[in-house]
Amino acid sequence: MAKQLTVFMENRPGRVNSVCDILEEQGLNIWAFTIQDRGDFGLMKLIVDKPDRAQLALADRGFACALKDVLAIIAPDKPGNLDRLTSALLEKHVNIKDMYGFVSPNDRQGLCFMEFENPDAVDIAELVAQYDFRVLSNEELYEL
């Protein structure tokens, strides 16, 4: 499972930058990120190469943050692939709580981070395998 780092931040200039500053100081690499905004505050979600170290570094500097497991699913970058993925989930009544993704332009692979309401309802790895998609293992993810 991938580890997502969620950081609470106020909506004012410089907040994203100070998170990045701290990660930079630690020599950490950010692979993916997204922000959920709720007016005066928001949550920044990050996938980084060393999640535990990133969390410690941020908490040490006073950020409220936490780690949680999310699934990293890799699929070829082709039209319709996200539709296939979500249709398969729908068929099994798996509710998506949160998702975000990006395409790596060099190898034309799409990477999608997902969180489910009922993750134990179905074997996701098996479900996505029918389309030749894969749930990335920790080794693949963190020993790049």
């Binding site: 969620t6 609470f8 959920q36 709720r38 505050f41 949550l43 908490a59 409220a64």
Partner: peptide, 15 residues
């Protein structure tokens, strides 16, 4: 102040 005791990583809970 949102410290670790009242922090949640879900935006709807924070709201």
């Amino acid at each position: 102040e949102v410290d670790e005791r009242i922090f949640s990583d879900e935006i709807k809970r924070m709201h």
